[in-house]
Amino acid sequence: MVVAVEGLRKSYRVGGRALPVLHGASLRIERGEFVAIMGASGSGKSTLLSILGLLESYDAGRYTLAGHDTRSLTEERAARLRNALLGFVFQSFHLLSHKTAWENVALPLAYAGVDRAERRRRALSLLARLGLAARAGHRPDELSGGQRQRVAIARALANNPPVILADEPTGNLDSKTSAEVMQLFREIHAKGRTIVLVTHEPAVAASADRVILVRDGRVVRGDASGETVQSP
């Protein structure tokens, strides 16, 4: 089991008041699974994914990531775990605009302590695998949306992490480009990586092995592997 979440609670502080978002969410994800998280807007999907990504703390419950209890992690330790275990793909790409495609891809390698020549070599080979060899020296504003998201996916793969977390990765793409990006996710999954992907679109969720449904801060369906769930 790579992700084990039990009774997770989370409130945000908004204007001095607590806004509860997760009310005891539980779920389990096996190594190598491809899981889609679905649910209404505001139901807490992104919050859940941020907690899974160690980007956000939680108030109560248990979350174990690849055997690491995440309750009392220091920020330094969390950063190292993110670097080694997790790859992130965002709806808005989050590429650094002043860096070229390959430099963006190489960023996680820099934080892993890989030297520059090796970083460049690995970034270029990743981009080539994703059909972007010709774009390696371009800056994000010289790329199309689909190309930008593929650069971001290459970056998520750079450190070869076992788990990829993606929050609406096709949210800013047209349907044809979405289909291409999802094809890419399926290939990545086929190579053995665990993928957790938040989406609104049933067509996107159809690529997953399993769909987890979140409603009002709770996982209401598909919370453990083995359950058979149809797309809602």
């Binding site: 980007l55 330094e76 950063a79 992130f88 989050h94 996680p108 934080y111």
Partner: peptide, 15 residues
């Protein structure tokens, strides 16, 4: 946003 991204990719607060 850049610092948020760098943190996601493995930058520590001290980095």
């Amino acid at each position: 946003a850049e610092f948020g991204l760098r943190r996601a990719l493995g930058a520590t607060p001290s980095t």
